[in-house]
Amino acid sequence: MAEPKDGCVSPAKGPIPPEAEESAPMQNQTQKGVSKVIARVGKPAPDFEASAFIDGGFQNIKLSDYSGQWVVLCFYPGDFTFV
């Protein structure tokens, strides 16, 4: 993984469609901007790229960077919320 940098990071891609879908862009064009829920137990976790704050710096991180490790991915409503 790249060293954390304090400079600007390039915009993160967000969800990364599986390669099968990527190779058929025409089919997918009308779907642009519409995100379908694809996370299900027993199925591959949808890959994504997101900008992140880590070790005091900013860095783009992909879920697939952690292939080979157990990963806990936690979503939460917002920083500075109470629970």
Binding site: Q69, W70, V72, C74, P77
Partner: peptide, 16 residues
Amino acid sequence: VDIRGRFLIDPDGVIR
């Protein structure tokens, strides 16, 4: 916002 959701993903990238 994203609501509270936790996903456990195994070393093969499968959601467990």
